[in-house]
Design a protein around this nucleic acid. Structure first.
Length: 586
RNA sequence: GCGCUUGUAGCUCAGCUGGAUAGAGCAUCGGCCUUCUAAGCCGAGGGUCGCAGGUUCGAGUCCUGCCAAGCGCGCCA
């Protein structure tokens, strides 16, 4: 409908060019928008306001010329010039009715499109360190990333979802050491726990499992553990120095093989937990990409070699640096430390090279907003690798600040004082959690009030939308109870009976759904879909209160039933895309 | 100090990429259930769009400068 109008306007512009009213080289960007006010018709264009300047005419005169040049078309009822020079289009209601037929024909596919044209997109999201269960902060990135991926797929992109597992590096060593220390406690030993260690209960559970299967096999004398260790922070020392020394000690005492056992068991247990957690939350991945794999298969070396070839590496103070400042970064970055170990950034360069080599047209990283300072160096790396860095899009997700009523909830992974995603799901349910997480723009700081979300009151907007769906289902059940029949074909032939304002605006909304999907997908803005569904639910509830659907008049009844089942279909499609349930009874 | 993000009704947030009288939910107040589910609907009040300039037919939206909040500025990940 919209595209048809745009074509008409384009032809009018061509006509005016031929008539010499407009310069031939002018190629105006035709903006046609749905009106907010029905008095302004169904669509409005500001074209005359844009072209008045170049054509040296007053806006309203320009508008008159455009309207005069506009080809006649039966679906356009009339055209008006209004305000400073807007052109308002009033559509023939007959054309509106088509949307109901279209929705019934296309069913679950209504709204899907091919604007993505099969382009390959990789979306990397969550990628939380596997050092503990996901907390509510990760929940937002998980929901946002998965919905963005699903939206892109819905509009015709070929999407690959990926979780980057940071299974290398110091944090993992701290995890392994933490598990072993708890294991020692399981063996009956008493020893201090480092202030920097992971304190969560899940650490004890893992240690307990190991002790149950392996007994005291990994037990070592406490004196040897503590001998000559630099003091921890509470004792006036440095916590980082302390824990690094402790890790080295654990490695020595256990030996490399046994240490790896602890490391691997910890990693596998936590990954398994995260996977299950996300899966229950409706978030799945095609690939869990291991950072260690990049180290083991030489990918990091290859990436650094490519940077070397292009002349972006140099040595300084024993370390190897990447000259990222030559490509827009604030300063140069170390890729290989003076102790010979590559940095996390080096892994990430290799990871992005891997993504590029896999041939994605578009690479999307969903990151926590605290990582924004990291973006310029990754872009620099992509350029240095000879890639078009515009293929990379980084989407930042602000943290959700948790409240319980007025009280802010403090969180720290290491101290174990955090609300897990699983706890949140148990408290408020998957539907409400997902809905809340993507209800707001991702860059917007979000206050997540646990108390409010826990109370299952009608303040929870997800119920509002689900209730609209359940109401349609309820009407259909009533049909049987009242002994009335439904004749879908008769309804389709009687659509012109739908003349009420509520009915017309409801149809107008339904028409917009495919456009909303596209816009939400291409702008990476799931909240636009949420807003649309809320609006559709509102329109429906209003209609429900204003008119009876199950009326005696067979033609009208069936026409209305076709309309509200179309609403049901679109609610189902939208909520389905968000992986939110559509209960038939509430 | 530099950089990124944010600032819209009492609170939480939209605002369709520069359009017509800035919207919604919650909260407050007043109405609507013998009729398809009241987890609903109708109505009222509530605004210096952080502040000050600028760009143009037109600015919450764009540019500049301030103010405030959050985050980031490691040979951590």
């Amino acid at each position: 409908m919209k595209q048809k109008l745009e074509a008409l306007i384009l032809r009018a512009v061509e006509t005016l060019k031929n008539d010499g009213v407009l310069a031939g080289d002018l190629s105006p960007n035709i903006i046609l928008e749905h009106t907010r006010d029905p008095q302004h018709g169904d669509f409005a264009s500001n074209l005359a306001l844009m072209l008045a300047g170049p054509a040296q005419l007053k806006p309203r005169q320009m508008a008159e010329k455009i309207v005069a040049a506009l080809p006649l078309e039966s679906s356009v009822l009339r055209v008006e010039i209004a305000g400073p020079g807007f052109i308002n289009f009033f559509m023939n209601p007959d054309s509106q009715y088509q949307i109901i037929k279209k929705i019934h024909e296309e069913g679950n596919c209504f709204g899907l499109s091919e604007v993505g044209a099969g382009q390959k997109v990789q979306v990397e999201f969550v990628s939380a360190n596997p050092t503990g269960p996901l907390h509510v902060g990760h929940g937002r990135g998980a929901t946002y990333g998965s919905v963005v991926a699903d939206l892109l797929q819905a509009v015709g992109f070929e999407v690959h979802r990926e979780y980057y597992v940071n299974d290398a590096g110091r944090q993992m060593d701290i995890l392994a050491a933490s598990i072993w220390l708890r294991y020692m406690e399981e063996c009956g030993e008493v020893l201090p726990f480092p202030s920097n260690g992971y304190r969560g209960d899940y650490i004890r559970e893992i240690a307990d499992d190991i002790h149950n299967t392996s007994g005291n096999e990994y037990r070592r004398p406490v004196e040897l553990v503590l001998e000559d260790l630099p003091p921890d922070e509470p004792l006036g020392g440095d916590k980082e120095t302390h824990i690094d020394a402790l890790i080295d000690r654990v490695k020595t005492l256990l030996g490399s093989a046994a240490y790896q056992d602890f490391f691997q068991i910890g990693l596998k247990t936590i990954i398994r937990d995260i996977k299950a957690d996300l899966s229950e939350f409706g978030v799945t991945f095609q690939t869990w990409f291991s950072e260690r794999m990049l180290m083991d298969n030489g990918a990091i070396g290859q990436a650094l070699a490519r940077l070397q070839e292009s002349g972006y590496l140099y040595k300084k103070e024993g370390a190897t640096w990447f000259a990222s400042s030559r490509l827009g970064d604030e300063k140069d970055r170390v890729v290989v430390r003076d102790n010979g170990q590559s940095t996390y950034f080096a892994s990430d360069i290799a990871y992005h090279m891997n993504k590029l080599d896999r041939g994605y047209d578009r690479i999307i990283n969903v990151w926590g907003a605290d990582h924004h300072g990291y973006i310029p160096r990754v872009r620099a790396a992509m350029q240095a690798l000879g890639a078009d860095e515009s293929r990379l899009t980084v989407l930042l997700v602000q943290f959700a600040v948790l409240y319980r009523g007025e009280e802010k909830v403090q969180m720290s992974t290491r101290s174990g004082e955090f609300v897990t995603l699983r706890q949140l799901r148990n408290e408020v349910g998957k539907d409400a959690a997902r809905f809340f997480y993507v209800m707001r723009r991702s860059e917007q700081h979000m206050d997540f009030d646990l108390k409010l979300a826990t109370e299952k009151t009608n303040e929870n907007p997800v119920y509002y939308v689900q209730y609209a769906y359940a109401r349609v289902c309820s009407v259909l059940r009533q049909l049987d109870e009242k002994g009335l029949s439904r004749d879908s074909l008769l309804g389709m032939d009687s659509l012109e009976q739908l003349k009420e304002t509520h009915e017309l605006s409801l149809m107008g909304l339904l028409t917009r759904y495919p456009e909303v999907l596209q816009k939400a997908a291409l702008n990476y803005e799931p909240h636009q879909l949420i807003n649309f569904l809320r609006e559709l639910a509102t329109e429906f509830h209003t209609y429900y209160n204003a008119h009876q659907f199950l009326v005696e008049d067979t033609a009208l009844r069936n026409a209305r039933l076709n309309l509200i089942t179309a609403v049901k279909q679109v609610l189902s499609n939208g909520l389905g895309l968000l992986k939110i349930n559509t209960p038939e009874v509430m």
